[in-house]
Design a protein around this nucleic acid. Structure first.
Lengths: 338, 338
DNA sequence: CTGAAAGCGCTTACAG
DNA sequence: CTGAAAGCGCTTACAG
């Protein structure tokens, strides 16, 4: 049996209150008592138990990240920003993975009810208005990342804007048939990106052709995989007439698309989405999302709210930027951004 | 204030013991009582609080993953295997990130003392023998991944073997000067891979030339980054005479190396390490580590131990396999594995 | 099948 | 600066 606060108190010749104060850095402890307690604790390998502290103090210094899919480049980048802020502030990190096979709303509410953490970061969780509203009743600090709802703080990127910029870039160069390599439309970012794509179309007086919006057949991770990108690009390359350029819904799909073009021996300019670290090394032109910053900022925001429940709700929206590299060049021709 | 077990008990007209039994699926509750309790709980949005349950029952159904760096492809893959097993068994996941700026041993012991979880998965944590021994005193279930120590269960890959296979492949093809694109040698896997590289050298009666073991200059994440790979390959390509082939310590470094070769307009065959999902789409020949399986299996192993502290300690070692794709081909020449 | 009661290991006013 | 005591919200023998 590991030592408890009683063991330490007895051995150090003080009360448990004093031991507790030492570990909570309370000012009101004599140097002598403090030293004695620390020495005994070290000797016995003691440290207050997280769960007992949590119950007694009603706070546990924990932030829980709620996500639909863990192994995903976007999430990994966001997570690293979260982790940076969390360890800076000395908070614990828990992760809850929403299963795609069970009811999302039920899982989310269950998580909140258990009160495992003091605050929650919802990454890429997309719910209906009314369901978000239900969550407000729990009166728990929640910050949304990659989603937007007026009842909670949120940090997101303007997806329509990003897609618009990518499509516009191609249209400005004179391309008329620009494909969108898409993913599952149940994904809100995808729907928003479609809006941006259509907006650019309109601006250039081009008709919307649903044939040009293509996805792969493998739909795990909502289609945000190399494989899905590969499959979709293969379809695009076999269309007649072949699209002149392609906007991809994510860099990881673009990686698959690049490979498809190589295998098919055909090449059209493409733009990705995210700007994961790899993109630079693949020469992939892409729409940059500041993923790490988003995680970092969202965490700061959440913790601010945990410390001040009454502060005004804020919606932070980043503007995605187009970064041009080599994947938009064709036949080695220089690429001119007009 | 959220509802407690007392509120539910009162409103349902039963004792708190009964409420508790309902939520713990105890067999000894009448259907009528159960229904009533569940109805009231649902109405009041009640679910037992994790921390109170944890303290009272002395178990919290939590596994903590301890890692040095979160945003890393190897870890991400392993983590997804862990998560799969965890959600299958209904366990919570916590992550503790060991900071490179503080004393590792201290952080690790601190984590164990707090008893946040029932079991711990140490991923890519490398300690001295004596330090591992110290951890045994805590008598807490721990499973090591990507490391090996006889006092704990472990799941790892034979790194020397992997490097040996990669190097041997090149030597068999007749190359004499094969570079190793390495990373920080404080990393144990790197040291083991060096051993394998040297072993192959010996087998083919080739001298060991330390000049051929090169790293980049950027050393964050121990040098396992695209950038470090890029820098290192640039150095390799400028050596005279230029090495004929290169074994890379990770796929992610190989991605940087590929880019370096493109930028430099020079090309030598390379083999990566890990076989991350991307590798296939980059045509990267590589040494495959079953990362997901490792996470999955390690988690199963850990939970088995949590349920049976006395079971024999097991060391699981996977054999890495060489997967040949196009990065080992030169000038389009067919690649023959003899 | 059910309830009263002790206990899990802490924190924190309160009184001194 | 220090300690006695109540309380955090549960679980779980124990007795019935």
């Amino acid at each position: 049996m590991p030592a408890t606060i009683y063991d330490i108190a007895k051995k150090a010749g003080v009360s448990i209150a004093t031991v507790s104060r030492v570990f909570n850095n309370s000012a009101n402890v004599s140097d002598k008592a403090k030293k004695k307690v620390l020495a005994v604790a070290d000797e016995m390998g003691y440290h207050p138990q997280a769960f007992a502290q949590g119950l007694a103090s009603r706070k546990n210094n924990t932030v829980m990240v709620v996500v639909p899919v863990i192994s995903n480049y976007f999430f990994m980048e966001v997570l690293s920003g979260i982790q940076d802020k969390l360890s800076e502030l000395n908070y614990e990190l828990s992760i809850f993975n929403i299963s795609p096979n069970k009811d999302v709303q039920e899982q989310v509410e269950h998580v909140l009810k258990r009160r495992w953490a003091e605050g929650y970061l919802f990454i890429s969780i997309h719910l209906e208005e009314e369901n978000w509203k239900k969550l407000q009743k729990y009166k728990v600090p929640i910050t949304l990342v990659d989603e937007h709802y007026q009842g909670f703080d949120s940090v997101s990127v303007d997806n329509a804007q990003g897609a618009y910029r990518a499509a516009k870039y191609f249209f400005k160069k004179g391309y008329k048939r620009v494909a969108m390599l898409s993913a599952l439309e149940t994904s809100k970012p995808i729907r928003d990106r479609l809006i941006g794509y259509k907006k650019a179309l309109e601006e250039f007086d081009l008709p919307y052709d649903s044939q040009l919006v293509v996805t792969g057949d493998s739909m795990n991770r909502d289609g945000f995989t190399e494989r899905a990108g590969y499959e979709a690009m293969m379809k695009i390359l076999s269309m007649e007439p072949m699209p002149e350029a392609c906007f991809c819904a994510s860099d990881i799909q673009a990686v698959g698309a690049l490979k498809a073009m190589e295998d098919a021996g055909k090449k059209i300019p493409i733009i990705g989405y995210d700007d994961i670290e790899l993109a630079e090394y693949m020469g992939l032109s892409t729409i940059r999302q500041p993923m790490r910053d988003m995680g970092f900022f969202a965490t700061q925001n959440l913790i601010d709210r945990m410390n001040n429940k009454d502060k005004a709700i804020s919606q932070t929206i980043y503007s995605p930027e187009l970064t041009i590299r080599t994947s938009t060049k064709v036949n080695g021709k220089a690429d001119i951004l007009s």
